[in-house]
Write a protein that binds this DNA or RNA. Sequence first.
DNA 1: AATACAAAAATTATCTATAATTTTAAACCA
DNA 2: TGGTTTAAAATTATAGATAATTTTTGTATT
Lengths: 222, 222
Amino acid sequence: MAKTADDTIAVRISKVLADRIISGVIEPGARLRQDHIAEEFQTSHVPVREAFRRLEAQGLATGEPRRGVRVASFDLGEVREVAEMRAALEVLALRHAAPHLTAAILHLAEEATKAGDKSRDVRSWEEANRTFHRLILAPCGMPRLLATIDDLHAASARFLFAAWRSEWETRTDQDHRAILSALRQGNTESAAATLGRHVQWIGQKPVKTASGRTRDAFAIVG
Amino acid sequence: MAKTADDTIAVRISKVLADRIISGVIEPGARLRQDHIAEEFQTSHVPVREAFRRLEAQGLATGEPRRGVRVASFDLGEVREVAEMRAALEVLALRHAAPHLTAAILHLAEEATKAGDKSRDVRSWEEANRTFHRLILAPCGMPRLLATIDDLHAASARFLFAAWRSEWETRTDQDHRAILSALRQGNTESAAATLGRHVQWIGQKPVKTASGRTRDAFAIVG
DNA sequence: AATACAAAAATTATCTATAATTTTAAACCA
DNA sequence: TGGTTTAAAATTATAGATAATTTTTGTATT
């Protein structure tokens, strides 16, 4: 994580809180109390409130006037929604990025895929996955689009961690390889189609709840 | 504009400023000085800062640490970017909304189209246009998607006002009618295709600059 | 025992004040 | 005159304090 020292305190706080929300350290629905957070970060609550506004914009927290802020909760519907938005926007980004992709970039993307296959925990798999997507999309040169996609990736990671925080068996990513192969052949449409499907693949897994029951957890796995 | 009295001051301020930025009352690149704004709204600058964070998230302002916030500037590239994002996301929304569209909704959408045709200034045309899009997309029931589209519409309106603030001749909207007709026949794919093209139609017009020169202004007209 | 009410505690939202930084203006020197 | 340094003013960012609201807790009442 970039510890950009010249960031404003609010930005620093929002990054740390975002990481906690995404990784599931703070549970969905949990209240975020500004004084407590202010105390933890050794600041007043003014920057904390600004951090809250940033988290709200990213869709990681929701606030109601006078009643504070809480970690955004989510359901299968939102997992689907984020998956479809990612599919639509990543395909768009890839179409524009494709003409600017170099052999060097594709090589790095391949490395990221291998790193994903080798990873033994969700966290490092997610990081490798995000690297792959960023590498092949960044050359589109559309900053607003990339920023929106980034927020959606954060949401995706949240779903992923919620479902598979502890156990995780490695999966070799066939789709990533197919996308790279199509891009190498200059077949943008095929790459875009595969990417669109890839991002909408929603994994499902039975998970034990606190009460001992089992329910199904869902996550975007791509 | 909804003057929800129970909004927090920060939200109220951000709404007013957003309106000014979109309508072009404040020029792109202009600095937003927190003390001045605080004075205008009879508040301290704390809520003003929170309003800034909201504007940044909407892409209407950009801030650098310690150097304040300024109105986001834009160029043809960003107009294109927003148009393509809108096309991708509105098509997605329409596909999901289509099964839930009722005759009543389509009727209201037709009314909005007529209102657009009748409007004699950009501002009311834009409002009618936005109403049309919102009506046919809202039933998709995807809140995050709709929120993102809303932000993109704000950006679109900004481009539109920048280009045609003063002069504006009415244009009867053929596309809106084609979309409604396709939806009435249950032909979702045709409606989606037309919508996608419609949103990417970028108007162009020569505009006189302050120095008397003429340059081309661009805007999303759909 | 359950519900309704009231007082206390906690929390949010805001204001005023202060420190740190940047911008602007002026003076200075080559 | 043109550029550079220095001082002043303006501005941002944060802290500390206060008012208003909500949540919690305890108590009475049916």
